[in-house]
């Protein structure tokens, strides 16, 4: 609730007095930030903007929901497939490692 109220009041600069990012700049880096791929410095500026700006805050929330929904589809691959491939890999490993004549 607090976050929502804060977003309604525009503030040109963040609390630290650093140069605030505008909506266009945030839009360009938002996804990288949500992927955890933005630098710490950029991340802090984006966070400050998302707190202040209703529009960008909602945009970020939407992408977070999309990411969460997509990540929920991350199911383990079929266990029988995986097991066969692991056995196959072990077989390959042994076929190389136990060549006679080396000891």
């Amino acid at each position: 609730m607090m976050t929502f109220l804060r977003r309604l009041i525009p503030r040109p600069r963040n609390a630290q007095g650093e140069r605030a990012l505008d909506c266009v700049a945030v839009g360009k880096t938002l996804q990288r930030y949500l992927d955890g791929a933005a630098t710490a410095e950029t991340a802090a500026l984006i966070e400050a903007h998302l707190e202040d700006c209703l529009r960008c805050g909602l945009e970020a929330d939407t992408y977070r929901r999309i990411k969460a929904a997509l990540a929920s589809h991350r199911v383990p691959p079929p266990s029988d497939s995986l097991e066969r491939l692991r056995d196959f890999g072990l077989e390959l490993a042994r076929s190389h490692g136990t060549k006679p004549g080396s000891g």
Binding site: P76, L82, L85, G89, A93, H96, G97
Partner: peptide, 16 residues
């Protein structure tokens, strides 16, 4: 072996 060390742990990612 290097194969066991480097390759076998990655099988699941490869399958994904």
């Amino acid at each position: 072996t290097p194969f066991e060390q480097h390759v076998l742990p990655e099988i699941e990612v490869l399958l994904r």
